[in-house]
Design a binder for these strands. Structure first.
Lengths: 225, 225
DNA sequence: CAAATATAATAGTATTACTATCATTTTTGC
DNA sequence: GCAAAAATGATAGTAATACTATTATATTTG
């Protein structure tokens, strides 16, 4: 059914939780219902109070796991990127052509997990929607430099770096691999959002893979020398 | 010194203000100091109370101009995009080659206005930074469909449409002009932000024009048939 | 100059984003 | 099996936010 072993854990920097939520029943409930609530309400309307009520616990208990809802969001995003990197590694195993590797990478980034697929307490479809819509709010703030030094974005940067290496294999002279990859990743999120809410900013096609195709085409043409 | 006449006004949909801020001294103060405060504090920390104190007025008075700080942000963004469209029109006058037109369009989008340049009560450098960093927060919310029907994004969409037309001139068969342009516009904002705060996600170069060059290169390669 | 309108001053409400305290339950180490 | 430690629950409290309401005072306008 799935490729995961029971032993794998995705690492999130310790600055972003007070107590590891994967270490207790309550912690796992906070994560699973937290994902559901952010997905339903949006990050602005989501509060620890509402989450407490939903899981039959209290605000105070949640604060023993996470310092703030911003750190909770960073925690979730970081986990997501660690999980994506793992997926990437698996998806690229034994694929040798760098073009194929890059294509597969984009495909993975553009893929929306199936509803109800989950890994431990993480609902993947919900988490993917959250990262899509909410995660930019974790860096578009005045404290970005602070949380960055605490490691909020290492998992994300590592994934970008990994994909950049493939670009460099294809064209070592290409001057903008990091810009290209970060533009593409954020662009995928944005286009997914636009397709649903601001369709005049996209070119939706019957073919469900058009976002992936657009970005694959974009990236491959860009790095051709 | 500048190209603007005293008679030009940029149109923002009426849903986004209660009373036209350009119609009174207080209104103009709200806008000019509002821009300054959002720029300094970030949108999350910005409040009407702080703005009231800063301009020697009260929260209640500001609420007579704007229903909420979200609508204020939409107002500012809409004004910005109307202004950008006007700039674009001027910048493209008498330029006939569509490639040149597109290049100039990107250059304009990537340009950061000089400090202290302003048009009426709008400080352009500050407003540009706000649009860069904060404006995505006006659509990445659960009420995006509602504000969209009220016209929050018409000015933005219109600019995208205008640029798409140039793309279609160059290659009428290109399938993704809207995706390409919205990706590029948002990408420019993102890369500017990354250059300052998350440099590992960019490829900063000594040449101050590298963002513009990257996106021009990207877009022209993408639409080549 | 009266009437209309805009602004200021003040107060109030429900909610948020926390922190603090203390009692109770659960876990653990011996 | 029990005491000590740790985790959770229950409750309360604070400062700030995002507003709304009321009334008084300026300012504009016909």
């Amino acid at each position: 059914m799935n490729n995961f072993t029971n032993n794998i854990r995705f690492h999130v920097g310790e600055s972003f939780y007070i107590k590891d939520p994967e270490s207790s029943e309550l912690g796992r409930k906070i994560v699973s219902v937290g994902i559901k609530l952010i997905d339903e309400l949006g990050f602005e309307e989501f509060t620890f109070r509402k989450l407490g009520q939903e899981i039959g616990s209290t605000e105070a208990s949640i604060y023993r796991y996470f310092e703030s809802k911003n750190k909770f969001l960073i925690y979730l995003s970081s986990w997501y990127w660690a999980w994506m990197e793992y997926n990437l590694i698996i998806s690229l195993t034994n694929i040798h052509s760098p073009e194929k590797r890059l294509e597969r990478g984009i495909a993975l980034l553009a893929l929306e997990p199936k509803e109800n697929e989950h890994l431990d307490c993480f609902n993947l479809a919900g988490l993917s929607r959250i990262v899509n819509t909410e995660s930019s709010k974790s860096y578009l703030t005045k404290d970005v430099d602070q949380v960055n030094t605490e490691g909020a974005f290492v998992n994300y940067k590592q994934l970008v770096t990994r994909l950049c290496e493939i670009v460099k294999e294809i064209n070592p002279k290409y001057k903008y691999p990091n810009m290209l990859l970060s533009t593409v990743i954020e662009g995928i999120h944005l286009q997914r959002f636009f397709a649903e809410h601001l369709p005049k900013l996209t070119n939706r096609q019957k073919d469900g893979q058009y976002i992936q195709k657009f970005f694959t085409d974009l990236i491959l043409k860009a790095i051709k020398s």
